[in-house]
Design a protein around this nucleic acid. Structure first.
Length: 576
RNA sequence: GCCCCUGUAGCUCAGUUGGAUAGAGCAACGGAUUUCUAAUCCGUGGGUCGCAGGUUCGAGCCCUGCCAGGGGCGCCA
């Protein structure tokens, strides 16, 4: 166990294990005894529920077990109280001085005690993955923002992360696009090619293909030419990709998202025949209705088609080839895919195929609920898609409006910079604060919330801490608040310290379960406690000893908020 | 028909893997500003945790059945 994770709980549990041992040592070993934060501050700071569990095997009343345990050893100095409540809860109240020591350990540790859980092991995170020749819309925000947070979380935990943007740059749509590009665009439009033009071309070409079989045939033949390496089609295709990537990069820049690799599906194209060959050699892939399939009856799933009856490869083939390639090149411990919920079956199927191939890499599909509009799903045809960039624009615009109103003396360029930090932060936070697996109904109002449980609430809390720290630095120059003595006399102060203690375990858990929302919830709760503390406990106006102690607490809150929001990819301006 | 997910306050959601009187935000109402940033804080009202059984000291959480919504189910990704 890392010494910074659940530090208090571990120390207290160790003491309780000894107490159980002293009371009932002969019966069984007590290494499973656990301590957790109290569910309610009225009960104390920590609690242990295991006496009730033990009562079963000991065949004694739960309260009697708890009493015997507490009677077995004297109360250690770290505790001010240990008492039994209800059916047999053991409630523990810790000494403020002891708690202060413990939180000081985290504060002094790098990144406030985030453990080195990865120890250099590799994890590939496959996220965002937009399709070439289509603008990114609000449906892409979840994969991008959630994936990026998982990226940052794993890096902080000591993993070697390879963030890979698996672009949709290969597939049947390119026949439609190439033929449409030649037919529906003027020369001028082809010169100054935009992604909007490409999207229009695609819709036009797609619609025509449904009514005009000859058109469909010509598109198919362009696709075949592309796949056979025809120079002209290849050049057009590369142009589509270049234009799309320029577009994507602009969005990623605004979102502060960076990838280690951007390998489209096409990257794996040459590996497909060999991949299929391996499946056949191992006797996993068999002919069925002209296609090549892997039977997954034992796994309770329908067959996985790896080669179409026309001889072409599909996405399952690409995905399997991608795993082979990644395993060979990076030897990852874990590969995480972040996509929407509709692909669950596909991932379960191809994970099963990988297992049959003998891959031990832990494959994980992090799926998220589809984003939809209150009036229903959005679609290109209905023309109700919201472009990702318009969402970002609107977020920044609304943030700027509020800044201008409440912070009119701030220089214009600083206002704009702040509007970006707050606007983008608000969008990221609304997404990250929800469990990925919930369906989100998109409304401007919710996505851009600026009060309550929102990104700006956290940023505001941080800015207020910073303001205090700056003023303290003027009052007491040349003193690092983190070296001050920590008192924790007030209940709020103790609550704040207890909450700070939970940061490392929260980060670890958020990464383990691939839910950034775990961290977001924690940070909101911490900010709430801090805001409450801020309101009722004057810092700079207090007596010197109290002032110094409180500012140290503030400094630690600042450490955690900056660190935690950073892990979510949310900016922390020092001034708002 | 089969598989996966969801169902908690008027709305949007948490609920630390089975613990104590189920919590936040928004909305509503009532307060706090000679104040370290009011994008804040304090308080009030608001609940048959979809329904019915079961498991046990104890269930929002686990098991079974049903109801409702979403998604998926052989050559799209």
């Amino acid at each position: 166990m890392h010494e910074t994770v659940n530090r208090c709980e571990e120390i207290l549990a160790e003491w309780l294990r000894q107490a159980f041992q002293a009371a009932f040592g002969e019966v069984q070993d007590w290494s499973g005894i656990r301590v957790q934060p109290a569910t309610d501050a009225r009960f104390g700071d920590f609690q242990c529920n295991d006496a009730m569990q033990a009562a079963k095997t000991l065949r004694r009343p739960p309260r009697a077990v708890a009493e015997a345990v507490l009677a077995a050893l004297p109360l250690p100095p770290m505790l001010t109280r240990a008492e039994i409540a209800g059916p047999g809860f053991i409630n523990l109240t810790v000494a403020p001085e002891w708690l202060a020591e413990q939180v000081a350990v985290l504060s002094a540790a790098p990144r406030f005690g985030i453990p080195d859980a990865g120890q250099g092991r590799t994890v590939v995170i496959d996220y965002s993955s937009p399709n070439v020749a289509k603008p990114m819309h609000i449906g892409h925000i979840r994969s991008t923002v959630i994936g990026n947070a998982l990226d940052r979380l794993h890096r902080a935990l000591g993993y070697r992360v390879i963030a890979d943007n698996h672009l949709g740059d290969w597939g049947t749509q390119f026949g439609l696009l190439i033929q449409g590009y030649r037919t529906f665009l003027t020369e001028a439009e082809r010169e100054a090619l935009t992604i909007e033009a490409l999207e229009r071309v695609y819709v036009q070409s797609y619609n025509r293909s449904k009514e005009d079989p000859a058109w469909l045939e010509s598109c198919k033949s362009e696709l075949v030419k592309l796949q056979q390496g025809d120079a002209e089609n290849r050049a057009i295709w590369e142009r589509f990709i270049a234009i799309s990537r320029r577009e994507f990069d602009r969005v990623y820049g605004r979102l502060d998202v960076a990838f280690d690799l951007t390998r489209g599906e096409s990257y794996y194209n040459d590996m497909l025949p060999e991949t299929i060959q391996v499946l056949q050699d191992k006797g996993l892939a068999v002919e069925s209705e002209g296609a090549l399939v892997v039977n997954l009856e034992d796994e309770g799933m329908p067959v996985c088609i790896v080669r179409k009856s026309d001889g072409g490869f599909n996405y399952a083939a690409t995905d399997i080839a991608t795993v082979r390639s990644r395993v060979a090149e990076f030897d990852p411990d874990r590969i995480i895919y972040v996509t929407d919920e509709r692909q669950q079956l596909h991932f379960r199927q191809f994970f099963a195929v990988c297992a049959k191939l003998g891959y031990t890499t832990h494959l994980e599909h992090v799926w998220f609920g589809l984003m939809r509009l209150p009036e229903g799903t959005f679609s290109t045809r209905q023309g109700n898609v919201i472009k990702l960039e318009s969402l970002l624009d609107e977020a920044e615009r609304r943030a700027l409006e509020i800044i201008k109103a409440s912070n009119s003396e701030m220089p214009e360029d600083e206002q704009r910079e702040l509007a970006v930090a707050i606007g983008i932060g608000a969008i990221k936070y609304t997404d990250l604060s929800h469990d990925p697996q919930t369906m989100i109904v998109f409304t401007w109002e919710k996505a851009l919330a600026l009060e309550g449980n929102s990104g700006p609430y956290l940023q505001y809390a941080y800015a207020r801490v910073c303001s205090l720290l700056d003023k303290y630095a003027e009052q007491v120059p040349d003193r690092d608040p983190l070296t001050n003595a920590l008192l924790l006399d007030e209940p709020v102060e103790k609550a704040l310290a207890l909450q700070l203690m939970r940061f490392p375990a929260t980060v670890l858990r958020a990464a383990e379960v691939c839910k950034p929302s775990v961290l977001a919830d924690y940070l909101f709760s911490l900010s709430q406690t801090y805001s409450s503390f801020y309101q009722r406990s004057p810092v700079l106006k207090a007596d010197a000893a109290v002032r110094d102690s409180r500012i140290r607490l503030c400094a630690m809150v600042a450490q955690v908020l900056a660190e935690g929001l950073g892990l979510l990819g949310i900016c922390t301006p020092r001034r708002i």
